[in-house]
């Protein structure tokens, strides 16, 4: 399982065998999701700012969607480039990230998890993560993001958020 530790002013991620390749492959695939306007995962990553006002919604999208997609795609590319492999049999490897890079990773990991949640049919807090390969990847990305955020918070001198009263990030019944 992936480990993350503080390293100088940033952090260091240790990937076990295959993990870097899976992450790189997913991050690379996210670009195609952004390119497909019919993909329900894309719609979920670009929610309405005005769910009750179609006109305001359209206006908001006209001004924001393209830039938003560009920035999200760039964040996903940042992971793919940093990881540098999409080989599911990638060797164990370590990677150093600055705080800014790691915050970009945290954002892109959210988009990856939203996309997988869409594929897995996870629409509400009551939906369980299926016991499938994709489900396992979804859980692993959650673990990776949780550990990343926890380490970033430590670097800020902030107590690990919410961990005392909520939860185990791997517990599917309490994902938030």
């Amino acid at each position: 399982m992936t480990r993350i530790e503080r390293h100088d002013t940033g952090l260091r991620i240790h990937f076990a065998e295959g993990e870097a390749g899976i992450l790189g492959s997913l991050a690379r695939q996210l670009g195609a999701v952004f390119d497909d306007e019919a993909d329900p995962a894309r719609a979920r990553m670009l929610p309405s700012a005005y769910p009750d006002d179609a006109e305001a919604d359209a206006e908001f999208r006209r001004w924001t969607s393209d830039d938003l997609v560009d920035r999200k795609a760039a964040a996903a590319r940042g992971i793919a480039d940093a990881v540098g492999t999409d080989d599911p049999a990638s060797a164990p490897t370590s990677l150093d990230l600055s705080v800014a890079d790691a915050d970009g990773w945290a954002r892109a990991l959210t988009d990856l998890r939203v996309t997988l949640a869409s594929r897995l049919g996870i629409e509400s807090d009551d939906d369980r993560v299926p016991n499938t390969m994709t489900g396992a990847v979804y859980e692993w990305l959650g673990h990776l993001q949780w550990t990343l955020v926890e380490t970033l918070d430590e670097l800020d001198g902030v107590e690990p958020a919410a961990s005392s009263d909520s939860a185990d990030p791997e517990a599917p019944e309490d994902p938030r």
């Binding site: 949640a117 807090d125 993001q145 955020v149 926890e150 107590e159 958020a161 919410a162 994902p175 938030r176």
Partner: peptide, 27 residues
């Protein structure tokens, strides 16, 4: 809004870092 995907710690970090809320308020 609540959603089934985002992690509590991540949401809290976004509130703290983006809006500048103190940790208690972000929480």
């Amino acid at each position: 809004w609540n959603d089934p995907v985002n992690l509590m710690a991540y949401v809290e970090r976004v509130f703290r870092r983006y809006f500048g809320f103190p940790p208690d308020e972000a929480h």
